[in-house]
Amino acid sequence: MLSAERVTKTVGAPGASATGPDSQLIILHEISLQVRAAESIAILGASGSGKSTLLSLLAGLDLPSSGSVVAFGESISAMDEDARARWRAGHIGFVFQSFHLLPALNALENVMLPLELTGVAEARARAEAMLRRVGMSQRLLHYPRTLSGGEQQRVALARAFVSMPRLLFADEPTGSLDAATGAEVIELMFELNREQGTTLVLVTHDERTARNCARRLRLAAGRLVGDEVAAT
């Protein structure tokens, strides 16, 4: 359902001349991979290995310098920015390390947001139900700044799952949380993932978190160096 074909990402190297031999810094080098429906994949690697960049390309948040990303039969790397936005609205959910809840909206409105972007009816009722599901029914009208880190990530999970996405991308979802809260959030995320049968792509540097996934890809210096399937 999602595949990357020889995806490379380069950026201009700081301080190098535009045409010199070291002018381009290679972040990702010819990555190819296939993600099957309902699969859960962890992308592991040290800092700077390119794992977040790979996630951004797979999610259509950025474009590869070469190669292509195809999802649900469509080449998202060939789409323009607005087409990719519509594609994301229809198929994708996100969980970020820094939660990225909108401070101007309360918990309920934050969760309603993706539904309203696609014009879904009964957005409020569905958002309320999802917030109840993540244990935030007492905090519906609270603004993000009045919520703890764990609570904010729960709201972010509700926002990610409320539109029942086919693909969920999670970028270090426990990176801003303490171990206990992080473990709760991961547990909740995998529960929801199982309930909805969502395909999950999780970026982490934490082996323990990654062990929750059926498959683990390892990146080092922008290259795919390992693809392990967990024993069932």
Partner: peptide
Amino acid sequence: EERVRETVVVRALGATRQH
């Protein structure tokens, strides 16, 4: 800054530039 942050999130969630 707040505006940039908000723009980022809603675009990641699938909002078009028009929206």
